[in-house]
Design a protein around this nucleic acid. Structure first.
Length: 523
RNA sequence: GAGCCGGUAGCUCAGCUGGUAGAGCAACGGACUUUUAAUCCGUAGGUCGUGGGUUCGAGACCCACCCGGCUCACCA
């Protein structure tokens, strides 16, 4: 039987079969032949003795110890992975197998494998998962390789992966890819394929896991308790944002997806847990950008008996620890810009910094004067903006963008911060800080407002803004006020944007590059 | 929502001032028993995002629409 008669299309027929279809048909055809040969194309398990990297390391160790056989053979190993390259030489062939640790080359020789097992290699395709047993050796070209004595198909890939080619650059030792899988949208949509063919993408998500893991271990070491609070909430709060709305059928009730954890975590402080944190998915029904995904991950933590100064120290430690764990250093390069993350971070007062930029103390300016300044800068949507929003926007444009090195901006105006305690000695301000790195907000924190009467007044201010058309303003949360009435000890609280922190530490330009499955339009 | 750039083979991309579609990789057939972006010979593969228009002739020019990326705006 010749293979060519099988997949060849009828020459007279209209050839509307696409490349992809033909490729998949060929794979289906091979699957059929495997089944005819009684070979299981979707195996149940495979016992590996070594991951790719371990196998290479084992050989090098044996080499160094001088325990190789006379013919230069090392130990027998069983490795398994996805076949990402195949170089056939007639009566021999090389393949690269990739597993979670990296790649290893395997070498098939006809007279080693036997006629049938060697012929069966024809039924393999790039993307297939295979297991291979054999002896380690080093090729003439110097690469540690498994000389295969038998191999097993573990999973047939019916769809071709968009594999590019890659080579190891002799000068740098780094793997250089050629004509890989680059279409940004396709990469996000088919993240499984992106991960499968782009090892550096896997690296980003390992780093992301390290960010969260390190945050947990730092907080655990400080005696924090990890908790879980509701995603579905009857009333949203803890941030200024538009929520997603959903409906519970059995209760016939409107519910919101949380926009922040804050109010629930502080209820727990009322309950007597003195240090709590949550790593949470939050949801905000707002635009998308390279810094915004509708669902994103926030780390919030609250500590009783502490104020915002304590929390600043803790945030410094947290960020520096995470950077050390992920980047291996306390400096980082983001999109070509090099900065240090070594504490202590600079601390500036919001009003003071804005005052310098404006030439006037913003606290002394009337609302209309602030609005005029904003107008002069041609800031949009300021007609109905309250005092807080005006100051925020002015700060954003005049100061924030230039905060490259890590900087704590402290003491925000009261109107901006309905959940923060008044600043000691200046009731126009609150005890709050935001941490900016490279002009991006990474953390937000305050001495938490624990006076239920003041909190009610702040909520009512917000409710008036809401009535005036500000759909991001807080609602009055009666249950939260009830909790405060039972008494919340002095508390410092912090929120950290995990996605953005990960972007910085992994040098990724878009939040979509640090979210495995970012929101996209429907396909 | 606005501006800019883009959509050509499965992937990465060429395609000049309009003349009838190309390359590399992948696929298929063949040669090759230490290769490595393997190499060499051969084969096949495209309603050029969609719909109109201009033209003898459109992948290219014009209009509309769809989709994407980036920037800006809202927001963390």
């Amino acid at each position: 039987m010749t293979q060519s008669t099988r997949a060849r299309p009828d020459p007279g027929a209209p050839s509307s079969v696409s490349d992809l279809e033909r490729s998949m048909r060929s794979r289906m055809d091979k699957l059929e032949r495997l089944r005819e040969r009684g070979i299981e194309a979707f195996a149940y398990r495979y016992e590996r003795t070594h991951e790719a990297r371990e196998a290479a390391a084992a050989f090098e160790a044996a080499e160094a110890a001088g325990t190789l056989s006379e013919r230069g053979q090392g130990a027998e190993v069983r490795v398994g992975g996805r076949m990402v390259a195949f170089r056939s030489h007639g009566k021999s062939a090389f393949a690269d197998l990739e597993d979670g640790s990296g790649r290893i080359q395997v070498y098939f020789r006809r007279n080693q494998l036997g006629e049938q097992a060697f012929e069966d290699l024809d039924l393999l395709d790039l993307g297939d998962w295979i297991g291979a047993r054999g002896w380690l050796f080093r090729t003439r070209m110097g690469e540690v390789t498994v000389q295969v004595s038998d191999w097993t198909l573990l999973t047939k890939a019916l769809r071709p992966l968009p594999l590019g080619k890659s080579e190891v650059d002799a000068a740098t030792g780094r793997r250089v890819s050629h004509s890989g899988f680059a279409d940004t949208e396709a990469r996000y949509r088919q993240r499984y394929a992106d991960l499968a063919v782009n090892p550096e993408v896997r690296k980003v998500f390992r780093a992301r896991s390290q960010v969260v893991g390190t945050a947990r271990s730092v907080l655990d070491a400080h005696g924090f308790l990890e908790v879980e609070t509701p995603v579905l909430q009857p009333l949203y709060g803890g941030a200024t944002a538009r929520p997603f709305v959903t409906h519970h059928h059995a209760l016939d009730r409107r519910l919101y997806l949380r926009i922040a954890d804050e109010l629930y975590l502080k209820r727990l402080i009322v309950g007597g847990f003195e240090r709590v944190y949550e790593v949470s998915k939050d949801f905000r029904n707002e635009g998308l950008s390279r810094f915004h995904n509708p669902e994103f991950t926030m780390l919030e933590f609250y500590q009783a008996f502490a104020d915002y100064h304590d929390m600043m120290d803790l945030v410094e430690e947290l960020v520096a620890e995470i950077a050390a764990a992920v980047a291996g250093a306390r400096t980082l390069t983001y999109q070509g810009e090099r900065i240090s993350l070594a504490p202590p971070f600079r601390r500036i007062r919001l009003v003071e910094a804005l005052g310098e930029a404006l030439g006037d103390d913003p606290l002394e300016l009337e609302d209309d004067q602030l609005r005029a300044r904003a107008k002069a800068l041609r800031l949009p949507d300021i007609e109905n903006a309250g005092r807080g929003k005006l100051i925020d926007k002015l700060f954003d444009v005049l100061v924030q963008k230039d905060l490259r090195a890590p900087t704590f901006v402290v003491d925000h105006p009261r109107e901006l911060s309905p959940l923060a305690k008044a600043k000691r000695g200046d009731a126009r301000l609150t005890e709050r800080f935001e941490l900016f790195v490279l002009g991006t907000e990474i953390a937000n924190a305050f001495s938490e407002l624990n006076d239920p009467l003041d909190q009610r007044a702040r909520f009512e201010d917000q409710a008036r803004l809401a009535a005036g058309g500000d759909d991001e303003a807080h609602r009055v949360d009666e249950d939260y006020i009830r909790a405060l009435e039972y008494g919340m000890p002095p508390t410092g609280g912090v929120g950290v944007g995990i996605d953005r922190l990960t972007m910085l530490l992994t040098d990724q330009p878009s939040i979509r590059d640090v979210i495995l499955f970012p929101i996209l339009r429907s396909e």
